[in-house]
Design a protein around this nucleic acid. Structure first.
Length: 698
DNA sequence: CTAGGGTTAG
């Protein structure tokens, strides 16, 4: 650097005085109090603007006051020193207290050595100060000190970086301020870049991290493994596939391929952006894998709707003798919940207890959720009551939600009340759970009251609360009230809300309101098949065929999307998946024959096909399979063929169960004397002796 | 001296 000798000397002198000040001040400031919490910091512009980039020929902030305020230091004379107004309470301890002052005063010590000692002491003191920072004001004060003392640009760059990091990522920091500071650094080091990229990566705008990453590639400073790691995190959050590939290339080019941690991040990112093939490939090519790498793959698969793969990996780990940890079992549990695989879930729970992982709340929460989603609230409740660790709000909410899914409204409300009694503040989700419970149990008045009491209890209602209460009132036929609620909302209604109302309109044959709801949906650009189907169904019920045709035409023009329905059932640990009218199963002919037999048999017991529900609700090509070959019916037929009389049949469906299937399965439970448990998108249906636990209200 | 994997939702 081309610094003139004069400036260097000045800088050195200043450095020295600061060293003296900060190095010896501990004795002075110990036991002091915070004098000022105000923003004492000086805006960087004020320094850099007037300094011509030379750094630090400006007096310290508070230098004069400091000298007077704390007095001079014995043995050092009347040196100027910096006081850090709001850090006055901080205990600053040099690594070797006592020795410092002695060494400084010793005339026998050569000057250069004295300087080194002083510098080290300053560094240690500033490090200590940085560790004690707990507000932006603190950061700003130390930063401005470094700036005014000329230590910012070059000498104390590691401290500068640390401060930048705090500004960019700590909870009290401020990313915009960090960026401002960063822009004043003449030659940012890799770690400065990393701090900024990391800050952006965890901010609400992760794309910015990628912009920074690209800037950095063009800058002289080289990227390191951490840079890639933070940038990859940003990709995961921004769902940026192409950028992830780009960074992957950089990882290879820069020779970081052997870095296990980085490879794990990479694999995690691929899984999170939905590139499971790439995730698997990264995993396969890893030279070394530890438990975290396995976890990333397992959790990625579980969350990316490959639950059976995830569970398979879990068993592979166990077989290999690798020690699964909390996170591994969380992935496995999530897979079990998705598939409703109770037996597997039981095994995982056994494993958890065996390994003592049940002292982790998050694991316990996941177990409660798993038992709930596998159809066994009682077991969930058992786990809930006998936990070996403290419950969190999520534990309570998960349990309430579990009760809700099974239509156990009384239990859910009791739990909500118990929360209040034991001093846990119910949040939005607690109320949502209880509301859902009322909705599923048909407790209209209770649910409505709960909804109305929320404001009083200081819990803000969100779109999902509105959704639930509109559903609740709509199902009860109180369409006008539901409609009024939508209109009086302080937040903007979304498509789901109008869809809910539309569904209720269909149930109660209210054409006028259905048209209002449909119009809103079209305005909002809905292209979901269900909306059109519902309206078309309502017209059909009233025989308004020309309107039906109009809606169908609109569907064609808009190319509406249809979510394919599918159902799972498990036989001997193997999962069998069926879609509507499925003929891909190896024994499909046998299954269809069984289904025909079923339909024939239940007809003798009084079943009447619910033709009015199919009317026109699907496209022409599906018509022949319309009702009889819905995926849940196929799954039930298959299970009847392949399971023994005494085991309950379990079916999991991704959509809501249709009216006809519901009726059919009720008959099957009676005629074949089997218990059948169906989990649909929203809740559980437990069919037994011709009745369903939802009491036909869903 | 700072890196990777994680629980509830109409």
């Amino acid at each position: 650097m081309g610094r003139s000798p004069i400036v260097s000397v000045k800088v050195m002198l200043l450095t020295l005085t600061v060293v003296v000040a900060v190095g010896v001040v501990p004795l002075l400031v110990e036991g002091g109090r915070i004098l000022k919490e105000a923003d004492q910091a000086v805006h960087p512009q004020n320094f850099f603007g007037g300094m011509g980039g030379l750094g630090g020929v400006v007096p310290f902030p508070g230098a004069g006051a400091g000298a007077g305020g704390f007095g001079s230091t014995p043995g050092i004379g009347s040196s100027v020193f910096c006081t850090f107004p709001s850090l006055g309470c901080v205990r600053v301890q040099p690594t070797n207290p006592g020795a410092g002052a002695g060494q400084l005063n010793s005339r026998s010590t050569p000057r250069h050595q004295r300087r080194r000692v002083l510098r080290r002491m300053t560094a240690v003191c500033i490090s200590n100060l940085i560790q004690k920072c707990n507000s932006l004001s603190h950061i700003k004060q130390i930063q401005s000190h470094l700036i005014t003392a000329g230590l910012f640009q070059y000498s104390f760059s590691s401290h500068r970086t640390k401060l930048l990091e705090l500004t960019a990522i700590s909870f009290y920091g401020e990313l915009s301020y960090a960026t401002l500071i960063f822009n004043y650094i003449e030659h940012p080091l890799t770690n400065d870049w990393n701090a900024i990229i990391r800050g952006h990566a965890q901010s609400p705008t992760p794309q910015m991290a990628l912009t920074c990453f690209l800037d950095m590639l063009r800058a002289p400073q080289k990227i390191d493994a951490l840079t890639c790691s933070f940038a990859l995190k940003a990709c995961a959050r921004a769902l940026a596939k192409i950028e992830a590939d780009l960074i992957h290339c950089q990882v290879i080019r820069s020779g970081f391929k052997a870095d296990v941690l980085l490879q794990t991040t990479l694999l995690d990112v691929y899984a999170k952006v939905g590139e499971f093939g790439d995730a698997q490939k990264v995993f396969d090519e890893m030279a070394r894998r530890d438990i975290a790498s396995w976890n990333a793959l397992i959790c990625g698969m579980a969350q990316g709707s490959f639950p059976n793969e995830a569970l398979g990996l879990f068993y592979r780990i166990c077989g290999m003798g690798l020690r699964a940890n909390e996170i591994t079992v969380l992935g496995a549990l999530s897979a079990c919940s998705q598939m409703g695989a109770l037996k597997e879930g039981d095994k995982v729970w056994g494993y958890i207890k065996e390994r003592g992982l049940d002292t982790n709340v998050i694991v316990c929460n996941a177990v409660i959720d798993m038992y709930g989603k596998c159809g066994f609230v009682d077991k969930a409740y058992d786990v809930f009551r006998n936990m070996r660790c403290d419950k969190t709000i999520i534990t309570w909410n998960t349990m309430i939600m579990g009760f809700a899914m099974h239509g156990h409204a009384v239990e859910a409300i009791e739990l909500l009340e118990e929360m209040g009694r034991v001093g846990i503040r119910c949040d939005q989700l607690s109320y949502l759970g209880a509301l859902c419970a009322c909705n599923h149990a048909g407790l209209v008045e209770e649910g409505y009251q709960l909804f109305n009491s929320m404001e009083v209890k200081g819990v803000t209602r969100n779109i999902k609360h509105y959704g639930t209460v509109v559903d609740l009132l709509g199902r009860a036929g109180r369409l006008k009230e539901a409609y009024d609620i939508i209109n009086s909302m302080s937040i903007l209604p979304d498509t789901v809300l109008w869809q809910t109302l539309l569904g209720a309109c269909k149930t109660y044959g209210n054409v006028e309101m259905a048209e209002i709801a449909s119009r809103r949906l079209v305005e909002m650009g809905s292209d979901s098949c269900g909306d059109f189907v519902l309206l078309s169904n309502i017209y059909a019920t009233f025989g308004r065929w020309s309107d039906v045709g109009r809606v169908r035409e609109a569907m064609k023009i808009r190319d509406v999307k249809k979510v394919p329905g599918f159902s799972y059932t498990e036989v001997d640990g193997v999962l069998h998946k069926f879609v509507n009218g499925d003929q891909s199963h190896p024994s499909w002919q046998e299954i269809y024959a069984k289904l025909d037999e079923i339909m024939h048999k239940i007809r003798e017991h009084g079943y009447v096909p619910g033709t009015r529900f199919v009317l026109h609700d699907i496209g022409e090509e599906d018509k022949e399979y319309a009702l009889s070959y819905h995926s849940e019916k196929l799954a039930v037929a298959f299970a009847l063929l392949n399971t023994s009389q005494d085991t309950p049949i379990q079916v999991i469906k991704n959509l809501r169960i249709c009216v006809d299937c519901h009726a059919v399965i009720k008959f099957v439970s009676k005629v074949y004397n089997r218990e059948i448990i169906v989990r649909d998108r929203a809740r559980f249906h437990r069919f037994k002796e011709g009745a369903c636990s939802c009491r036909d209200y869903w």
